[in-house]
């Protein structure tokens, strides 16, 4: 272990023994994870491992049945998403979920809903989004539903960033997107992270996720089975056999 990673940063997000269930069906058994301030953490694992459910419970979309979520030192377990956003925890949901009938610009404005009382900050958020993805600026007056999948993902990311979060949770960035689009999106994530944003990325494309993140967790059937630095996990024989080399 080298000196730069010897002292890990104080945890921005700390999840302890989190459990999620849909009725009687347990989707997440017990998951513990941490994301430090400014850290880029990935979570990989196959379809149905419980990654998305974990993220939904962290972001307040679902209430966990057990465990604890701490954000910024405060217990936020079970708090609804609309409150967590105001504390700096934002999520880009699986499948983009853009407001299809509304314009690209309105989607961005909605992303800055937490600044409703200060219109200037909303305008700034829109400008930041258009600077990050100039393609969106060209389509600002178009209905979001008319965008391509890649453009919708850009919009979802810009919208998620509009509230100026400290931690951005991204659920399945690559879902349904062409490799060409991903080659553009992953570097954007890295740049955002270098600028100080902590990122928790759930991703099925393990190779790409491990290439951009600092640390990673591997999830299987509702549990974290492996964790470590992204570099180490990329070399791990078990990980290589299960998740790498397929893409």
């Amino acid at each position: 272990m080298n000196m730069t990673t010897a002292s890990s940063p104080p945890a921005l997000l700390k999840v302890t023994d989190l459990g999620v269930a849909y009725g009687q069906v347990r989707a997440v058994q017990s998951v513990s994870l941490e994301v430090g301030a400014g850290e880029f953490v990935a979570m990989i694992g196959s379809n149905g491992a419980g990654k998305s459910s974990t993220m939904k419970a962290i972001a307040g979309v679902l209430a966990p049945v057990s465990g604890r979520v701490e954000f910024n030192g405060a217990d936020v377990t079970g708090q609804p998403s609309h409150r967590l956003v105001r504390q700096g925890l934002a999520m880009v949901p699986e499948g983009r979920q853009v407001f299809a009938e509304q314009t690209v610009e309105d989607n961005l404005r909605l992303g800055a809903f937490v600044f409703s009382r200060t219109p200037k900050m909303i305008d700034e958020a829109v400008d930041r989004g258009f600077t990050l993805f100039p393609r969106l600026a060209e389509r600002r007056a178009q209905a979001a539903g008319s965008l391509s999948g890649g453009e919708q993902q850009m919009l979802a990311m810009a919208r998620g960033l509009a509230s100026r979060p400290r931690l951005l949770v991204i659920d399945e960035l690559s879902l349904g997107l062409a490799p060409r689009v991903l080659d553009m999106l992953f570097p954007v994530l890295q740049q955002l992270n270098r600028d100080g944003l902590a990122i928790l990325l759930v991703e099925q494309l393990a190779t790409q996720a491990l290439a951009v993140s600092h640390r990673a967790y591997v999830m299987e059937t509702g549990r974290v089975t492996l964790q470590g630095s992204a570099r180490d996990l990329a070399q791990d024989p078990a990980v290589r056999q299960a998740y790498l080399g397929r893409h």
Binding site: G60, V61, P93, A100, F113, S163
Partner: peptide
């Protein structure tokens, strides 16, 4: 804007900070 957004994507609306 928020009153139209909630019917289209309620989960995403919540993630924007909309109650």
């Amino acid at each position: 804007r928020a009153m139209r957004a909630i019917s289209q994507k309620p989960v995403a609306a919540g993630l924007m900070g909309i109650d």
